[in-house]
Amino acid sequence: MLDSVIFYFFAGIAVVSAVLMITRRNAIHSAIFLITTLLATAGIFLQLRAEFLFISQIILYVGGIMVLFIFAIMLVRLDVPLPQIRSRTQKWIALLVALAVGLEAGVVIWLARKVPGQGLLIPNAAPADKLAPNTEELAKTLFGTYLLPFEIASVLLLVAMVGAVVMAKKRTDA
C-alpha cells in the first residue's frame, strides 16, 4: 500500500510537471518543469528497485542534458515568448492525433489487465525484497551479456564527440 502511495506521488508530479512544461510560454520555465518531470521519473525507477538507474537518470539526464538545454535556451535567445502561429487545421489535426493515441493506450491497458501475474509486462518478476544489489547486478549484465553493445557505445560516444565539434566549427569558419 505504501508502494502505491509513493508511486502515485511520483506519477502525479510527473504528469502535472509535464502538463505545466508544455503550457508555459517562457522556455526556461518549461525547462524547469522538465527537470521536475525527470526527477519524478527517476523516483519511479527507484520505486521499481532500480537504484543505479535512478541515480544515472539524475546524473545524466538532469545533471547533464538539462544543463545543455538551459545553455541552449540562454544562448540562442529562446526565452522570449514567441508569437503563436494560429492555424485552424492545426488544432483539428492535433485533436485527432491525441484521440488516436489515447484510444490506443486505453485499448492496450484494457487488454493487458487480464494478464495473470504481477504486472503488465513482467509476469515472473522476482519478489521485491529478494533482489540482489542493483549496481552489482547491472554491472554483471553489462559486462556479461551486453559486452559488445558496451564497446559499440564507446564508438557511438566517439562519433558524438567528433560530430559536435565538426558541426560547431563549421559555423565559426563560415
Partner: peptide
C-alpha cells in the same frame, strides 16, 4: 545502507549548478 551510497551524494550534488545558472 543504500546500494548506491556515495554515488547518490555525488549525483544529487550535481544538481547544484542549476541553482547557480538559473
Amino acid at each position: 545502507d543504500i546500494n548506491i551510497g556515495l554515488l547518490f551524494v555525488v549525483g544529487v550534488g550535481a544538481l547544484g549548478p542549476f541553482g547557480i545558472v538559473l
